[in-house]
């Protein structure tokens, strides 16, 4: 006769899983302690936050200020687009070198992947500081920071996308006697294009978000206005900047979602 008894709702944890749960809790408490987590501060923050909001509202909508912020936002978007376009364009050949089994050998694949890993491990603000030192204050430093940050992101994901495609078309071209470069250009890259578009649109969203704060370290864009607003306790202007950033970032996200659906939805 078959056993028809119901299994227990919760399984008894093994000794190993018990140890893992305990370790996770200890690491969490240790992190809270190191991060200066304070329940008192959390409970006392709403009045202070309310004070900030009351001083920031209404936002500064003086035409002269709005015009100045508008042009700074335009510069921010220029930094984001220029940096993202340079980064995405350079990511394609770099990803071809990083992808295993395509045009380069294992040594080159590993070296390029390690370099991309290093680029990703350095935050965009740190890259901006480096380029401010290298090329001076201003939007060009920010553009270079966005470009290198995009290469770290897109280079890795483009390579992963190319490794994951259906190998059938590549095999068919290998069987015709095509070279590795021909196969990459004729089968791998076209087949990876929908994934490239999706990754590139994420990179663009990321670039716009990053470019809004590059000004904090002198690398151009609207971030400098945010910093000056807080430094001078000009909270209404700072609030205007925050709202403008929110509108632009949400707009870019909406555009990216629409473009992804439009381009990839039809191409797949």
């Amino acid at each position: 006769m078959t056993d028809t008894s119901l299994p227990q709702r919760l399984e008894r944890p093994t000794a190993l899983s018990f140890l893992i749960y305990a370790a996770v809790i200890i690491v969490m408490l240790w992190s809270f302690q190191g991060a200066g987590f304070s329940a008192d501060k959390v409970l006392s923050s709403p009045p202070r936050f309310g004070d900030f909001v009351s001083r920031a509202f209404p936002p500064n909508v003086e035409p002269k200020v709005l015009l100045r912020l508008f042009w700074k936002m335009v510069e921010t978007l220029q930094i984001a687009f220029a940096g993202a376009i340079i980064g995405i364009a350079l990511s394609v050949p770099i990803a071809l070198l990083a992808a295993r089994g395509l045009i380069a050998g294992q040594l080159i694949n590993t070296s390029v992947r390690n370099i991309l890993g290093f680029i990703r491990s350095v935050p965009d603000l740190a890259w901006a500081l480096v380029f401010v030192v290298a090329v001076g204050l201003g939007p060009f430093a920010g553009t270079l920071a966005i470009a290198i940050d995009t290469i770290g992101f897109c280079g890795r994901f483009f390579a992963d996308d190319m490794e994951a495609i259906d190998k059938g078309p590549s095999e068919a071209l290998t069987a015709t006697g095509a070279t590795r470069m021909d196969i990459a250009a004729c089968a791998t890259v076209p087949a990876s294009m929908p994934a490239f578009v999706s990754t590139a649109l994420y990179a663009l969203e990321k670039a716009v978000r990053s470019s809004t704060v590059l000004g904090l370290v002198g690398a151009g864009g609207i971030g400098i206005e945010l910093k000056v607003g807080f430094d001078l306790f000009d909270y209404p202007t700072a609030m205007t900047v925050i709202l403008m950033i929110a509108v632009v970032v949400l707009g870019i996200e909406a555009f990216s979602t629409w473009a992804r659906k439009k381009i990839i939805g039809e191409q797949r």
């Binding site: 059938g168 078309p169 068919a172 069987a175 004729c186 076209p190």
Partner: peptide, 22 residues
């Protein structure tokens, strides 16, 4: 040599293996 040889051969697989977007 293999490329030269394959240039004289053709392969038709179970799945057509065309490049879809081209």
């Amino acid at each position: 040599d293999m490329r030269r040889l394959r240039a004289q051969t053709g392969l038709v697989a179970q799945k057509h293996n065309l490049v879809p977007r081209l």
